[in-house]
């Protein structure tokens, strides 16, 4: 454990843990669009920028992405100094030009007082900020179904050859963790569609409720050594079963005791 100062407050942190984790623990609101604890930091969105300095730096300070900066002893961190806010405003300004229709970007920019971009608006801009959370999570889960494709202006996220990805199991983790809700999917009855691939939802054998896709359940049972029957009943019916069997044992105990 080492001591660092964040916004004038002395706090304890683990040496080597990333600054952003410490800042988040203190419930300080630093915007971060490309950060997810499930995957390694990437430093793509640049919004988590903070100002750091030390006593012996003779008044010098520098700006670093807090999601990628490991804690050092005696660090002095400012999360909302004027210069940091100015940097964030510039980035928001650029984001607003590139993704003018994203409600999430608009809201964030508004918080920093950027209501209109000063750059030329890209009219056909989509909402993908290329943070790579979706692809990194997909890789971390072991599917490797999607990746960032193309470069420069046309870069985007897509499955190989833009066809339904064979490795996708329809777990929806990419879409649910996208900071701008760019990834489209549809859940209709027992059918789920994502990346143009159709999935059958696994229906509970008792009540018909659905939780995950059949393909995802098969993947888990195959690779994680979980009996497939576990997936065939939904959580509510499982609880009913549990109460029934625990109730039976309790009834025997009651009888035996009386």
């Amino acid at each position: 454990m080492v001591n660092i100062t964040i916004n004038g407050k002395i706090v304890q942190a683990e040496e080597g843990e990333m600054l952003l984790s410490v800042i988040r623990r203190l419930k300080i609101d630093v915007p971060a669009l490309c950060h997810h604890e499930a995957v390694e930091p990437l430093g793509a969105c640049r919004l988590c920028m903070v100002e750091i300095t030390k006593e012996d730096w003779n008044g010098w300070s520098k700006f670093v992405t807090s999601c990628l900066y490991p804690v050092e002893p005696d660090l002095i961190v400012l999360t909302h100094s004027d210069q940091v806010n100015e940097i964030r405003r510039t980035i928001m300004d650029l984001y607003l030009a590139r993704h003018p229709n994203s409600p999430e970007i608009q809201k964030l920019a508004e918080e920093y007082g950027v209501l209109k971009t000063s750059y030329e608006v890209q009219v056909d801009g989509d909402n993908c900020i290329l943070c790579g959370i979706c692809t990194r999570i997909c890789d971390a889960m072991g599917f490797h179904a999607i990746s960032l494709v193309g470069r420069g202006h046309g870069k985007t996220v897509a499955p190989p050859l833009d066809e339904p990805p064979p490795d996708c199991t329809g777990c929806l983790s990419c879409a649910l963790n996208c900071p701008t809700n760019f990834i489209e999917f549809s859940d209709q009855g027992n059918k789920r569609t994502i990346w143009k691939k159709d999935f059958e939802m696994l229906a509970c054998v008792k009540c018909g409720a659905t939780t995950i896709t059949r393909e995802f359940a098969e993947f888990l049972s195959r690779n994680r050594d979980i009996p497939f029957e576990y997936f065939e009943t939904c959580d509510a019916c499982h609880r009913k079963e549990t109460s029934l069997s625990m109730g039976r044992i309790a009834a025997w105990t009651k009888e035996a005791q009386s």
């Binding site: 604890e37 499930a38 777990c171 929806l172 995950i212």
Partner: peptide, 22 residues
């Protein structure tokens, strides 16, 4: 469960044989 790491894929909800992941 570490909520920060969780990606909400619902695997545990589906897998628990006692229905206690929600």
């Amino acid at each position: 469960l570490n909520e920060e790491i969780c990606v909400k894929c619902m695997a545990c909800v589906a897998a628990c044989p006692f229905g206690c992941a929600l």
